[in-house]
Design a protein around this nucleic acid. Structure first.
Length: 476
RNA sequence: CGGGGUGUAGCGCAGUUGGUAGCGCGCUUGGUUCGGGACCAAGAGGUCGUGGGUUCAAAUCCCGUCACUCCGACCA
């Protein structure tokens, strides 16, 4: 048997990307489907990725002055009605608890779809003076949005995320915070997930319900579609006025604060899968891979093999590598394929012949290259290799993306661009009608505005003077 | 919420003139194997999604219902 039989297990990545994705998340044991429609069970292997994401991102938040807290899951329905746009935007997808303790509740309770309302309520109690500002808090939690169609990680009824909520004394400071966190997300995506992203402001149509301005980061998936991988919202005084977040300023005047919120979710795991995967399955960036190096003993029944494998494992763990040894009683080929499918960045094969020659076979998942490494240098070589894989994955993804960003001067070109699996940059006059036209004609939406790259003269849709340079793409 | 598809062993499926359920993988036990999904032998595992109807007899025919899934409209 060659590798072909194995490859058949995962759908063809080019022929049916959706099926490929579903195969990858289930066959690699990242998730299982939950009993309630649209919910997912995150299995240990998938959850470990999330833990690595959390750890890395959390350190970046702390560095940016944020502290973690926790707010309740259940929010009185009346809280939502305080901000008009917010309630209108979220009402259709809020799950509501009507009964508890064996009786109907006086007031229904919303299962949080996001926590602006309850956090705003608490902030209004906590903030008195300009000395209390800024308030920068984040919570890691689950939220629930009753989506019509769902897909593991990308859109599930319940998902894990982090939501940061801040209050500032001035508009400038709040805006700065909004952009700072957007940049934290961008650097995290590139440095840790090895995913290049476009960041920029969202159009009115695409912004968060209740925000003054929404900024997002968009990542290109292997099929050329875009995934919104994180958002940072400038909320102005919309929420501070709705929730009465006021402080007494230096000039003894009572003023409303300016708030922001920012979030990323387990969708990031979906982004990693769809930005790096290949025909064999997952390809995980070393920084988030649950297992960075898998050791596969060959002919383990022969003397010294298991001992050598254990020795290598210990040395790697001591050097800070997440290493494991696969001691299952299965043929080596089976293990090779399984760990490749699961995206482990580095595989180390150790057998009698290697031990004799004081070496090990080392395989890297990103390029599928196999080399021999002397046992004396193994630990340092693996560490070097992991760093190189991390770097190479970003470069590869960036190159792939940059080749698929095109310009368009009219609707036909926009359609042609997205049909070819590209991101399309085009001038836009700023009106909703033109945005709707693109949606109707090309099934593509505006992702972010990247005005800093230079705004073209004319709107590609209506021909009137352009106000923005927009990236249009089909999106998840 | 509109259009299509599928429900049979853990997974993937086969099963029509209606006659009491099968294949591959996986699983268990024993043995031989082990450098790219090993082999032999013996096993375990099913109220055929669900409710009703027709019939001596239903996985199979009829009616209802539920679930899942794909494609559209809505969304991190």
């Amino acid at each position: 048997m060659d590798g072909k039989q194995f490859v058949k297990e995962i759908a063809d990545i080019n022929e049916n990307f959706t099926q490929w994705y579903t195969d990858v998340v289930t066959k690699t044991e990242l998730v299982d489907y939950g009993p309630v429609k649209g919910t997912m069970v995150i299995r240990p292997y998938g959850y470990a990725i999330w833990e690595n994401i959390q750890k890395d991102m959390d350190a970046r938040f702390k560095k940016a002055g944020s502290k973690n807290a926790y707010f309740p899951l259940l929010i009185p329905m009346s809280y939502f009605t305080k901000e008009a746009e917010h309630v209108e935007g979220f009402a259709p997808e809020v799950a509501v608890v009507t009964h508890a303790g064996g009786a109907k509740l006086e007031e229904p309770l919303a299962i949080r779809p996001t926590s602006e309302t309850i956090i705003g309520t608490m902030y209004s109690k906590w903030i008195q003076s300009y000395r209390d500002l800024p308030v920068i808090m984040n919570q890691w939690c689950n939220v629930m949005r009753w989506e019509k169609t769902t897909r593991p990680f990308l859109r599930t009824s319940e998902f894990l995320w982090q939501e940061g909520h801040t209050v500032h004394a001035s508009e400038e400071e709040a805006m700065e915070e909004t952009m700072r966190m957007l940049d934290v997300y961008r650097s995290f995506a590139e440095e840790t997930l090895a995913i290049p992203v476009f960041t920029g402001r969202k159009t009115e149509k695409e912004k968060f319900a209740g925000a003054v301005a929404t900024f997002g980061m968009e990542a290109m998936m292997l099929d050329g579609k875009s995934l919104q991988a994180g958002t940072s919202h400038y909320l102005g005084q919309n929420f501070s006025k709705a929730f009465d977040i006021k402080y007494l300023d230096k000039d003894s005047k009572l003023k409303y604060g300016y708030t922001t919120s920012w979030g990323t979710s387990t969708r990031l795991i979906g982004a990693v899968i769809m930005a790096h995967g290949d025909q064999r399955g997952l390809v995980l960036p070393p920084k988030v891979a649950p297992i960075q190096a898998i050791i596969v003993p060959v002919a383990a029944h022969k003397g010294g093999v298991n001992e050598k494998a254990a020795e290598i494992e210990t040395a790697l763990i001591n050097a800070g590598v997440r290493a494991e040894t696969d001691r299952r009683d299965m043929s080596p080929g089976w293990k090779f394929n399984e760990w490749e499918m699961k995206g482990v960045p580095v595989r180390i094969e150790i057998g009698p012949r290697d031990i004799e020659n004081n070496q090990a076979m080392v395989f890297r998942r990103d390029t599928l290259e196999k080399t021999t490494v002397r046992l004396d240098n193994l630990v340092s070589e693996i560490n070097k290799l992991l760093a190189d894989i991390q770097k190479n994955m970003l470069e590869t993804a960036k190159k792939r993306r940059d080749e698929r960003v095109v310009r368009a001067n009219n609707l036909e070109e926009i359609l042609k661009g997205v049909d070819g699996g590209n991101f399309v940059k085009a001038g836009w006059c700023g009106c909703r009608e033109c945005e709707d036209k693109v949606k109707e004609y090309a099934q593509a939406t505006s992702r972010v505005m990247v005005d800093e790259e230079g705004v073209p003269e004319k709107c590609a849709i209506c021909g009137k003077p352009a106000k923005h340079l927009v990236i249009f793409a089909r999106a998840y």
